[in-house]
Simulated assay, not measured.
Amino acid sequence: MSLCSYIGCNVELPLHDYDSESEDIIKIGWGFSDQEERVNVQKYQFTTPYVYDISNDWGIVISEEWATKEVCEESKVKLTELCKIMNNYLEEGDFFELYSCWIGEEADKRYGELTIQLNNFDINQIEIGEKTLVRFVK
C-alpha cells in the first residue's frame, strides 16, 4: 500500500511525466492513483473540479503521530515546494486543497480539516495527518 497525496484546484495544471527520470521533489499528475481513486477523492473530499496526485514516492504527512520524524521532515520540504508551485497558478483569493490517504481509502471519512494562508504560515508550526483536508488560500 502507498500513501498518496492529492491536490484539488480550480485551475488545470500541466502534468508531470512520471516516466521520466526526473528528480523533482513534487510531481503533479496521475502517477500513483487510478481513475476510480481520483473520482472518489474528488467526490468525498474536494470542492474543486481538477484533481491530481502529487508525490515522488510517498505522500505528504507532517505529524509524528502518523509518520516518522524523517518522513515529516521530507514532507515539509515537499509541502514547501508544492506551495511555491501552486503560488504561480493561483490568483489572489483562490485556493487549492491537499488530502493524503492510503490508496483505496479516498472515500473514507476524513479525520480533520484546516485552512492555511498560502504565503503566511510557519512550516514548523503546522501538523497535517493522514485523511486531513487542508485548504491553502492565496
Rank of each mutant, 00 (worst) to 15 (best):
F96K: 06
I62F: 14
E73Q: 13
K76C: 10
H16K: 05
Q35V: 13
T47H: 09
L133W: 01
S20K: 07
D122E: 06
T132S: 06
E127F: 13
K27R: 10
G104P: 11
T115E: 15
K131V: 01
L79I: 07
L82K: 10
T68C: 01
P49A: 02
K109N: 07
L79P: 04
R110F: 02
G31K: 07
N124R: 05
E81M: 09
G29K: 00
S100T: 07
E21C: 15
S100G: 03
I28A: 04
Y52S: 02
Y44E: 05
Q35D: 14
V41P: 00
W58D: 12
G29L: 01
E113S: 13
I62S: 08
E92H: 03
R135K: 01
R38V: 14
G29C: 01
Y50D: 10
V61Y: 01
V11L: 00
L13V: 14
I126G: 09
I26L: 03
E70M: 02
E105C: 15
G31D: 09
N87R: 15
F32E: 13
E74Q: 12
V137K: 14
Y99V: 00
I128H: 10
E64D: 06
C9W: 08
C83A: 03
G112L: 03
K78V: 12
E70C: 02
L114C: 02
S55A: 08
S100F: 01
T115L: 03
D19S: 10
G104L: 13
E21V: 14
E105R: 13
N40T: 03
C9V: 11
Y99G: 01
E36F: 11
T115V: 08
D17I: 10
K27G: 10
N10H: 08
F121R: 07
V61N: 04
E130F: 13
D34C: 09
E36C: 10
T47N: 15
K109W: 08
W30C: 13
K43D: 14
K69L: 13
I103H: 01
K78L: 12
E97D: 00
E36S: 10
L118K: 04
D17T: 07
S63W: 06
L79S: 09
L15W: 05
G104E: 14
M86G: 01
W66E: 15
I25S: 00
I25N: 04
T132Q: 07
G104Q: 03
E64H: 08
G59R: 04
D122Y: 06
N40K: 14
G104T: 07
V77W: 12
Y52N: 06
Y99C: 04
K76G: 08
T80Y: 09
P14G: 13
I28F: 00
W66V: 03
I7M: 02
I103P: 03
C83Y: 05
N124M: 07
E23S: 14
Q45G: 05
F95C: 05
E97M: 01
Y99W: 03
R135D: 01
V41Y: 05
T48M: 06
M86S: 04
E97V: 02
L114A: 05
S5D: 06
E64N: 12
G104H: 10
N87H: 15
N120E: 00
Q35P: 05
D108W: 11
V41I: 07
N124L: 00
E21T: 12
F96L: 08
I126P: 11
L82A: 10
E91V: 09
S100W: 01
G31E: 08
E92T: 05
